[in-house]
Amino acid sequence: MNATNATDFSSVIPASALSARLGDPDLRILDCRFELGDANAGWQAYGLGHIPGAYYAHLDTDLSDTGRSGLGRHPLPDPRVFAAILGRWRIQPHHQVVCYDAAGGALAAARAWWLLRTCGHEKVALLDGGWPTWRAAGLPVAADLPLQGREDYPAHWDEGRYLLDADALAREVAAQRVLLLDARATPRFRGDVEPLDSRAGHVPGASNRPFSLNLDDTGCFKSPARLRGEFLALLDGRSPDEVVHMCGSGVTAAHNLLAMEYAGLTGARLYAPSWSGWIVDPARPVATGD
């Protein structure tokens, strides 16, 4: 479901609904714009204009802990540190949180959504179409910085929502107990190109579901019914809780997981280190092609 009731959104929220709630004291907005080629570009864009009241969430420093080794390019943040960051953004459990970026949610906004859900926050949604849709609709833009908070978020990190152990994942895939879905573009999955990591290819036994397939030609999510049909075809009789999502570094994988939840298919997990974590050990096997 895309909403728990008429006003609480837990997966995707349209721009019109967010616009109608601007100024609501129980609303918190996270601007997650980021560019892989320029880590400062998102912050600079935020400074030029953002949705009124939005805090800036940086993929590298707020939504990841790049100091943790062996866990991919975007390791999960320490739960206590992330709780303090949520407190800085003045987020508390009763708040409706909305995340957005400039890539339909795929570059960092879906990651923020997933992290909040993983620490127990239910009322968090992705802005459908993100910043481009907001701007195209002529909706309000601000450049001021919102007030920072000091109270930590009472997070309860749900370790059942993700995997960190590559060896355990390999055993589950080999035994066909899970369906591993890789969200990267097909040429990267096949190993035809690799612009970011030291080795090309994919985890043996994985299937490819590029995150871009979740969006329509306008950059908004396909309908829940259409997404449900597409994912059910991939699951081929499996339960959603048998699905594990991955990508290059655990970021765009969250987009597939969110799309499943938007379609009413709940319970999937995320292999957080993803491809960049898998290849840390050169002894781990690599597959290429389809």
Rank of each mutant, 00 (worst) to 15 (best):
271 Y>N: 00
200 A>S: 11
143 A>S: 15
241 D>V: 10
115 L>F: 11
109 A>E: 07
5 N>K: 13
135 R>N: 10
252 T>P: 01
33 R>V: 01
118 T>G: 10
85 I>N: 15
101 D>V: 00
270 L>Y: 01
173 V>L: 05
108 A>H: 13
189 F>P: 02
118 T>P: 12
271 Y>W: 08
236 D>T: 10
84 A>H: 15
35 E>R: 14
19 S>K: 10
33 R>K: 03
11 S>W: 02
220 C>E: 13
65 D>I: 13
159 E>A: 14
74 H>R: 08
265 L>K: 00
49 G>M: 07
102 A>G: 08
212 S>N: 15
158 D>T: 13
75 P>V: 13
277 G>L: 01
64 S>Y: 07
289 G>R: 09
245 H>G: 02
130 G>L: 01
281 D>Y: 10
179 L>H: 00
144 D>Y: 08
123 K>F: 09
260 M>F: 06
11 S>C: 11
229 G>N: 09
15 A>F: 04
171 R>P: 02
92 Q>F: 13
126 L>A: 02
242 E>Q: 14
124 V>F: 03
12 V>D: 01
213 L>P: 10
103 A>Y: 14
55 Y>G: 00
195 P>R: 14
163 L>C: 07
13 I>F: 08
108 A>T: 09
157 W>C: 04
102 A>V: 05
252 T>R: 09
223 S>I: 12
233 A>I: 14
258 L>F: 08
29 I>L: 02
231 F>L: 14
221 F>G: 05
26 D>Q: 07
27 L>H: 01
67 G>S: 13
246 M>K: 05
10 S>K: 13
270 L>E: 01
243 V>E: 00
52 P>E: 12
258 L>P: 03
19 S>I: 01
65 D>K: 14
8 D>N: 09
46 Y>K: 01
269 R>E: 04
55 Y>F: 11
155 A>W: 11
108 A>Q: 09
94 H>E: 15
258 L>Q: 03
164 L>N: 09
153 Y>P: 06
184 R>E: 00
169 L>T: 03
168 A>P: 02
284 R>F: 03
170 A>S: 06
228 R>Q: 15
182 D>C: 04
146 P>H: 08
43 W>I: 07
166 A>C: 03
113 W>V: 07
186 T>I: 12
121 H>A: 12
271 Y>T: 03
249 S>E: 07
86 L>V: 12
235 L>F: 12
129 G>Y: 03
220 C>D: 12
248 G>Y: 03
35 E>V: 10
281 D>H: 06
208 N>A: 10
139 L>I: 05
112 A>S: 08
185 A>V: 13
109 A>R: 05
190 R>F: 00
6 A>H: 00
58 H>V: 02
127 L>V: 01
223 S>E: 09
164 L>A: 06
141 V>D: 11
147 L>Y: 11
18 L>W: 00
99 C>P: 05
273 P>R: 06
177 R>C: 07
219 G>H: 11
191 G>S: 09
100 Y>Q: 08
108 A>K: 10
1 M>S: 09
80 R>S: 15
124 V>Y: 04
278 W>Q: 02
39 A>I: 14
36 L>Q: 06
281 D>S: 09
71 L>N: 03
